[in-house]
Design a binder for these strands. Structure first.
Lengths: 156, 156
DNA sequence: CTAGAATGGTCAACGTGGTTGTCGAAAAAA
DNA sequence: TTTTTTCGACAACCACGTTGACCATTCTAG
């Protein structure tokens, strides 16, 4: 919306503002639908757990944090009723982390909200410009974009 | 780079990956130029302090955190040699936080690195598509993009 | 088969950055 | 002048990350 020259420092600010606006709206929506306690970090963790469950060590690898940190996140998720630990009969060392129905619900709901939010961006920009934006971003960040390793990047 | 239909959840991931890639490269560069201790949160805080200095309370307002949290950040910045507190002769309650020369250096360096990084994106995308991306983001996030309130969003 | 290495989970201590609540001193407003 | 507001600090606490250590179990070589 400006043909003025842009500063380099605006780019990260714009990206962050976009990201944050989506995440903030997601969590406002989640809070309105029975999940007020969920934080962004929990969403990432649940996404990494997935439908099949995962061990705490593997979760740590997927999220790019130590297994201890992953274990703590699972503790919180479990305390909030979103995940549970199940012993693995095939390997007495492992404890599978699985999403509870509540956790699955939150994940499904998040997916729906993200679709809705993308729709709003499409209304604002037009499908064309939105796709352009996504493609441009994918060009510069590459497939790394879909790694969930957001270590330490999330808070309230 | 894909004419397939995109999922809503990809958008925040792409934005975050872009943001993070810039910030990570910035701090790698800063570390290589004598500022290995700086964290993203410090950059935001120093930006908010600016050339004129600011009180801890005002800093908190600018960053969207409590004055206590802002005070702690100033403590950390001061311990690292990037900021200092100066008593305000005109108001005995206030203590002006100011950047030290080291702090100013880091800020100037950051600005230069961001220009360089934007240049790399321009090489990849072309000036046209980069400007399109910036404009599209500004359209959806509005002027709010340039608020520095990133409460709790930063870590390592 | 058994000894050693690798893996998984947990405990402890700690660092950083956030929150509230409280408080006294100083300034501003009534 | 009295009351209210503001500023900076202290304390207690929470969330989320880190290392290091440890034990139990499983895998892998010899």
């Amino acid at each position: 919306m400006a043909d003025r020259e842009r500063w380099g420092f605006e780019l990260p600010l714009l990206l962050f503002a976009g990201f944050r606006s989506l995440i903030d709206q997601l969590h406002a929506e989640l809070a309105d639908h029975g999940h007020p306690e969920l934080r962004p970090v929990h969403g990432f963790a649940m996404q990494a757990v997935g439908r099949d469950g995962v061990t705490a060590s593997e979760l740590g690898r997927r999220l790019g944090v130590s297994k201890q940190a992953a274990g703590k996140t699972v503790d919180r998720l479990a305390a909030l009723g979103y995940a549970e630990r199940v012993s693995d009969p095939a390997d007495a060392r492992r404890k599978l982390v699985r999403l509870t129905p509540r956790g699955q619900d939150a994940l499904v709901l998040s997916g729906a909200v993200f679709e809705e939010l993308r729709g709003r961006w499409a209304d604002r920009l037009g499908q064309e410009r939105l796709t352009e934006l996504e493609d441009a971003l994918e060009t510069v960040v590459g497939p790394a974009a879909f790694g969930l390793d957001a270590a330490g990047w999330f808070g309230d």
